[in-house]
Each structure stands twice: as structure tokens, then as C-alpha cells.
């Protein structure tokens, strides 16, 4: 039954059925089939098997198929809407993120330190919650005092900032720069914003 030609010729049959056969191989196959009834039968059976499987392939899903898929889709329109908005307004998004982070950070800084703070190592004297620049002492550069009052009897070569406290005037005191007093959260914020923008401009101007 099994002829010598089988393997080589059936390979050609499959290549023909794959649609990947060279003209030369197709010619070989054709001329062989004309002379070999066994291969002819084989080829016929292959084609028949294919047509049987294909004839069967107008399989249809149930008529509710599409509606069932649509009903089971996740309801994510809102999320997509938000995503799309964010993508379409990158500048506003960046600004929103910037403000959330900045206010958050600044607020927590405000919330956290209620302790008296002042620059150390400048010969300043502290009495209760008052920081004193004693007579004869000269502070070079800016002076920032948080959560306390400031009394200047000596000299300050720069700006003075008092956060959450008062400036107790002393006639003898001498400040070369400005005095800023910050008591409310919004002023604190404003001070920070100015501070940040000043450092940004400093950076860009360098």
C-alpha cells in the first residue's frame, strides 16, 4: 500500500493546501497525481476533510451574545473622563498638583513647630519667649524668629522676620533692612510663596 513517493509527495500536497508552493513543486505534484491513483486518493481525502471542517464553520453564537458582552463591560466612563481631562489640560494639572503639594507641605510645617526658634550662635539672649539682640551685638545677615517676640537692642545687618510674635520696639535698636511680622496662616503662606518665588528667580537669574 505505502508507496515510496508518499512522504515527499504528501509534503507537496500540504504546501499546496497552505498556499505556499513554488511553481516547480506544483508542477511536480500535478504530474505525479496524474500517474499515481494512491496519491490522488490521498489528496482528495485531504481536500474533503478540509471542506467538511469549513462547511461546519458557520457556527453562530447565541443572539444575545453582543448584548451580554456590552452589559458586562466595566463602567469606567468616569475614570476615563477624568484621565482624558488630565491629559487635555497638562498645565492646569501641573498647577493643581503644585498647589496641593505646596499647601500641604507648608501647612504641616506651620502645624508642627510651635517651638521658639531663632538662629543659634549669634550671641542672642532668650528671656521667656522673647529673643533679645543685646546692646553692642551685631547680627550679620537676616534674622528669623519663630513663635516668639524679638527685642532688638543691638544691630541687625539685614532683614528681620518675626513669625507668630511681636517686635518689641527698643529705641536703641538698629535694623538696616525691613521688618516683617507674620502672624496668620495666610501671611505665613504668602511669606513662603514669596520665599519660593524669590529662590526660583534667583535660580533662573544665575
Amino acid at each position: 500500500m505505502i508507496m515510496k513517493c508518499d512522504k515527499q509527495i504528501t509534503d507537496l500536497m500540504h504546501e499546496y493546501l497552505d498556499g505556499h508552493i513554488t511553481k516547480k513543486d506544483e508542477q511536480t505534484l500535478r504530474s505525479h497525481l496524474q500517474t499515481c491513483p494512491a496519491c490522488q486518493e490521498h489528496f482528495h481525502e485531504l481536500k474533503r476533510a478540509i471542506s467538511l471542517v469549513k462547511a461546519n464553520s458557520d457556527l453562530r453564537p447565541s443572539s444575545s451574545f453582543t448584548s451580554q458582552v456590552m452589559n458586562n463591560l466595566p463602567k469606567e466612563r468616569k475614570r476615563i473622563g477624568v484621565q482624558r481631562w488630565l491629559r487635555m489640560h497638562p498645565l492646569l494639572t501641573a498647577a493643581a498638583i503644585f498647589f496641593v503639594m505646596m499647601f500641604g507641605g507648608v501647612y504641616s510645617a506651620w502645624d508642627q513647630d510651635h517651638q521658639l526658634s531663632y538662629p543659634k550662635g549669634k550671641n542672642l539672649v532668650v528671656e521667656d519667649d522673647t529673643v533679645i539682640v543685646p546692646e553692642g551685638v551685631r547680627v550679620d545677615g537676616d534674622l528669623v524668629v519663630k513663635n516668639g517676640n524679638l527685642k532688638i537692642d543691638g544691630e541687625v545687618e539685614g532683614n528681620v522676620v518675626i513669625i507668630n510674635g511681636d517686635h518689641l520696639m527698643a529705641s536703641t535698636g538698629n535694623i538696616s533692612g525691613e521688618i516683617k511680622q507674620v502672624n496668620e496662616i495666610f501671611e505665613w503662606l504668602w511669606y513662603h510663596i514669596k520665599d519660593i518665588s524669590r529662590s526660583i528667580f534667583d535660580m533662573t537669574s544665575k
Binding site: 464553520s57 458557520d58 457556527l59 453562530r60 453564537p61 451574545f65 453582543t66 458582552v69 456590552m70 463591560l73 466612563r77 476615563i80 473622563g81 482624558r84
Partner: peptide, 25 residues
């Protein structure tokens, strides 16, 4: 992709038979 869920219905209608037949086979 822009969030129009209804447009997906056309895709399902077009491919349902083939996807179903492949899975069934």
C-alpha cells in the same frame, strides 16, 4: 479609546462569530 463604550458594540458584532467559532473548535 476615547471612552465611547457604544463604539465597542460594532467591534463585537463584527467579530463575534469568528471568535466564537475559534473557541468552539
Amino acid at each position: 479609546k476615547k471612552g465611547d463604550q457604544a463604539a465597542f458594540e460594532e467591534i463585537v458584532l463584527f467579530y463575534q462569530s469568528k471568535v466564537f467559532a475559534i473557541c468552539f473548535r
